[in-house]
Design a protein around this nucleic acid. Structure first.
Length: 305
DNA sequence: AAACAGGCCTAAA
DNA sequence: TTTAGGCCTGTT
């Protein structure tokens, strides 16, 4: 029943099976907060699992698969995940490839202010997810001048309308709905047309989403190639898309391309910068993990509005 | 009921 | 180069 425990990068893992669900246990994951990670506004398709038997558990669709991530103590359990999927996808997606002890130390060294130390403490356990670049791009185009509830609603509707249906019937104990859908490909989104997108109540964003989908589908915007370039290049390439400004491009780079230096400035971060930093403070001074510092700031800024 | 929401585009100085 | 409106829609 219990397979042998193996080493996966720096973590001990084991693959097990319960009923008809395969899952992976990852041991000694230091300070990973499932709720902060999935609820800090960086992703839009995960939700808490009602009636979970774990200390905390969130589930949702990622890379075309419905998974559930649960934590008990410093053990992470990922349902509907085998060793291969973990190694090839979720290890990086969950930010387990990043050394948060070192990252936090670096941020604290560069910016040892009372403010920064306090938001880091609040946000301890947040991991920046390494999401799919297209999904991040599309999601953050939708996010502009919008609120979280409606963003989630629209993305959900988009997936239902043109994403591939996923069999997650065996995951109902972990929050799966009757039908789950993958995030649609750029081709599928493009096929909706601007009018089809309008039906999703995206308003003026319809043409922006369409332009993004079209460019990616035709390779005019090569996300794989952009991902391999440095973050400034990534941002200047992404802002060529209609409706993608500095903020959306930075979010795409940070959350969808692992550009941890990217520092998205939205209204909340603007407020924090005005309030707690010198007038002409340059976020680049926060270093190669500025984006993670940004996420700590954002988390505290939006905490209990 | 008017204002606002994790921006961006366009037009006008 | 910087700044003010306007924008879809839903919620408060």
């Amino acid at each position: 029943m219990i397979s042998e425990q193996k080493k996966c990068f720096e973590y001990e893992i084991s693959e097990k099976r319960e009923e008809n669900i395969t899952y992976i246990d990852v041991w000694d994951v230091e300070g990973f907060s499932v709720s902060k990670t999935f609820d800090c506004g960086q992703c839009f398709r995960f939700r808490p699992v009602e009636g979970s038997l774990h200390e905390e558990e969130f589930s949702g669709v990622v890379f075309g698969r419905f998974i559930s991530v649960a934590r008990d103590g410093d053990r992470l359990r990922i349902y509907n995940c085998d060793e291969t999927f973990f190694k090839e996808r979720l290890y990086c997606y969950l930010g387990l490839c990043d050394d948060y002890r070192a990252i936090r130390q670096d941020i604290a060294n560069r910016c040892p202010t009372e403010y920064m130390l306090s938001v880091m403490e609040n946000g301890e356990g947040i991991r920046i997810l390494r999401q799919d670049s297209w999904e991040a791009l599309c999601s953050f185009i939708i996010s502009q001048n919008n609120n979280i509830a409606r963003i989630k609603k629209i993305i959900n509707a988009l997936c239902q309308k043109c994403g591939e249906e996923i069999d997650a019937s065996f995951m109902t104990e972990h929050g799966a709905s009757e039908k789950e859908f993958a995030f649609p490909s750029p081709e599928a989104v493009m096929a909706l047309g601007i009018d089809g997108l309008r039906e999703l109540r995206v308003g003026f964003r319809a043409s922006y989403i369409y332009d993004g989908a079209r460019r990616v589908a035709y390779g005019e915007t090569d996300l794989t190639k952009i991902q391999k370039s440095d973050w400034q290049t990534a941002i200047s390439e992404l802002t060529k898309i209609r409706g993608v400004g500095l903020k959306v491009a930075s979010c795409t780079a940070l959350f969808g391309m692992a550009k941890l230096e990217a520092f998205p400035i939205d209204v909340w971060i603007r407020r924090m910068l005005d309030e707690h930093f010198p007038k002409d403070f340059d976020p680049l001074l926060l270093g190669e993990y500025a984006g993670i510092a940004q996420q700590y700031m954002f988390y505290s800024a939006t905490l209990k509005k």
